[in-house]
Simulated assay, not measured.
Amino acid sequence: MVKEWNELQLDEELEFVTPPIEKVQLVKYSGAAGDYHMIHHDDEVAKEVGLPGIIVHGMFSMGVLGEFVSQIVGNHGFVSDLQVRFIGMVFPGQSLTCRAKVVGKSESKKKVDFEVTAEVTSDKIASEGNVSAIYFS
């Protein structure tokens, strides 16, 4: 899915669907992020606080969006800015459909701006935001 700077066009939309999120990923993410809140790995605790079950970390979906844009840029550049707002819950076993729409390009800076979303279903957005990437050339 790597795209060079000159290949990306304004209003172009790119998409990536993750495999279903597994509970083991959440445990690993907890360790990496230092977020050991039990609602992310203990079904009973999640239900005690009023949730239907274990929920995926909001920051997990942000990481997926950042990685998605990083995969678009590949070795041609880097993600320079990432701003995400968390809107809905994600549960283990669900996949995320990630979308990135090119909303800006700067020739002088070799910068590309994307609007991004991570959706659980076509009508349920989990996260949305903006990502910028700088290309080396």
Rank of each mutant, 00 (worst) to 15 (best):
F68G: 00
E7G: 13
R85W: 02
V27E: 14
N6A: 15
V17F: 09
D81G: 08
E67F: 05
V49P: 01
F78R: 05
V84C: 01
V84I: 11
V103T: 11
A33L: 12
A32T: 12
I72H: 00
K3H: 15
G50F: 04
E44K: 12
G66V: 04
G77A: 08
Q71G: 09
G93R: 10
L82I: 09
K101V: 10
H76T: 08
L10I: 11
T97L: 09
V120A: 09
A32M: 14
K3S: 13
H40G: 03
I87C: 03
E15C: 11
V17A: 12
V90Q: 00
H41L: 11
T117F: 04
G58A: 03
E4R: 15
L65V: 02
I72L: 08
I87Q: 04
Q25S: 15
H76D: 10
K109F: 05
D42A: 07
Y29H: 14
F16N: 10
L14H: 09
K111L: 06
E4W: 14
E22M: 15
S108H: 12
F114M: 04
L51A: 05
K28Y: 12
H40T: 07
G66W: 02
F16I: 08
H57Q: 09
M59V: 07
F86S: 02
E67P: 03
V17E: 15
G104C: 03
L14R: 06
D42M: 07
L26C: 12
V45G: 05
Y36G: 14
I39R: 02
T97V: 11
S106L: 04
S106E: 06
L51Y: 02
S80Y: 02
Q94T: 11
S70H: 10
Q71V: 07
A33K: 10
G53M: 03
K105R: 09
G34K: 11
G53E: 03
L51G: 02
Q94M: 11
M38P: 09
M59N: 05
